[in-house]
Amino acid sequence: MIKKLVKILLIIAFLVGFFYVNNNWLTVSNYTIQSSEIPTSFDGYRIVQVSDLHDATFGENQQRLANKIQQAKPDMIVITGDIIDSNRYNLQNSLDLIDQIVEIADVYYVTGNHEVATNDVDRIKEQLTTRGVRVLANETLNLERGGEVISLTGIEDPLMGEVASKMISDSRMPSDAFTVLLAHRPEDFQAYVDAGIDVTLSGHAHGGQFRIPGMGGLVAPGQGYFPKYTAGIHEQGESKLVVSRGLGNSIIPMRLFNLPEIVVVTLKSS
């Protein structure tokens, strides 16, 4: 009887530990984007992408997450939406992270569907802006380094009322610079391709929530079952899409074989 009880307790402990690791162990995925369109001054430029925090917590006051971002040595930090969760909205939990990472590098942000769903999106943007985050709402910035320029465009989530192609058009993206687009939704990849975007950073898919080893994600918002865009780099023509698996959870409260992820994109001139 005692042996059976011990065995049951060991199984329970294993399962608790297994699910804890699946949802709390921070990983870093590194990708290199190589192009002759990238100016030599931006060769080696590191973009750290944070996506879909969904009010998850990594250490006291987000210290573990902030440390992981700092260790990646970013030249720029981008947040591709859903930094909060509309179902358990706790903005301060996200601001704890923001207060730390704005001291590391310039931070840029675009909305996700959950910010819009709170009906508090203006205050969220205001709080981020007050802390030094550059909120991009269908607009383009030129980033200068060593006298050379790349273009950074950010578009709102479509819940704000416009389709991706219209928002990109409104952003006045230049045609003669290497362009990085921040856009929450990967399922709109065709619109990014049609707009001539060089590389798009997206999230939203949560890695497919449950990942099946060797097959990929099981389900993603906007894509349904066995979605195409859940993680990694996707290419169509000259356009590339980098999809973050994200950090937190929303309606489905558990990840499986899908560790929380920070993405590091390194630009390489060729």
Results as ranks from 00 to 15, higher is better:
58 F>C: 06
57 T>M: 12
78 V>R: 09
44 G>R: 09
60 E>D: 07
70 Q>R: 15
56 A>P: 05
58 F>K: 02
52 D>E: 13
45 Y>V: 08
61 N>S: 10
90 N>P: 03
70 Q>M: 14
43 D>R: 10
67 N>R: 14
53 L>D: 13
87 N>E: 12
47 I>L: 01
68 K>N: 01
69 I>P: 01
88 R>N: 14
61 N>C: 00
58 F>W: 02
74 P>H: 01
82 D>C: 12
61 N>W: 00
51 S>D: 10
57 T>P: 04
63 Q>D: 13
63 Q>V: 14
79 I>G: 06
51 S>W: 07
73 K>T: 09
71 Q>E: 14
92 Q>S: 10
88 R>D: 14
68 K>D: 00
55 D>R: 03
52 D>K: 06
49 Q>E: 03
81 G>A: 12
53 L>Y: 11
69 I>V: 15
46 R>S: 02
76 M>Q: 12
91 L>T: 05
44 G>D: 09
83 I>K: 01
48 V>H: 00
81 G>T: 09
72 A>W: 05
63 Q>P: 00
69 I>L: 01
68 K>S: 10
88 R>L: 09
43 D>Y: 08
54 H>K: 08
89 Y>I: 11
84 I>F: 09
68 K>Y: 04
82 D>T: 10
91 L>K: 05
63 Q>S: 14
51 S>A: 15
74 P>D: 02
79 I>A: 05
87 N>F: 07
56 A>L: 06
48 V>F: 00
65 L>Y: 05
49 Q>H: 14
62 Q>S: 05
75 D>W: 06
70 Q>G: 14
84 I>G: 02
62 Q>F: 07
69 I>E: 02
86 S>E: 07
55 D>Y: 11
87 N>A: 04
88 R>V: 12
59 G>R: 00
80 T>V: 11
62 Q>I: 04
43 D>G: 10
75 D>C: 03
54 H>P: 04
83 I>Q: 11
82 D>A: 11
61 N>D: 14
62 Q>K: 04
74 P>L: 02
58 F>Y: 15
53 L>S: 11
74 P>E: 01
87 N>S: 13
92 Q>L: 10
61 N>Q: 13
67 N>F: 03
77 I>E: 09
70 Q>S: 15
68 K>L: 15
92 Q>R: 11
67 N>K: 14
69 I>G: 01
58 F>T: 04
60 E>K: 15
88 R>Y: 05
79 I>C: 11
57 T>I: 15
86 S>Y: 12
64 R>F: 06
91 L>Y: 03
60 E>C: 03
53 L>V: 09
57 T>S: 15
58 F>G: 02
62 Q>G: 03
46 R>P: 01
46 R>M: 04
50 V>G: 03
69 I>H: 01
56 A>C: 10
52 D>A: 08
82 D>G: 08
72 A>M: 06
50 V>F: 12
50 V>N: 01
86 S>H: 13
71 Q>V: 02
47 I>H: 01
77 I>L: 00
51 S>H: 07
77 I>V: 02
55 D>K: 03
71 Q>S: 12
81 G>H: 12
63 Q>M: 08
81 G>M: 10
44 G>P: 06
90 N>E: 14
73 K>F: 00
63 Q>R: 03
54 H>G: 05
64 R>A: 07
44 G>W: 06
59 G>L: 04
51 S>E: 07
92 Q>P: 06
66 A>L: 12
71 Q>G: 07
61 N>G: 04
75 D>Y: 00
47 I>G: 00
83 I>P: 05
79 I>H: 04
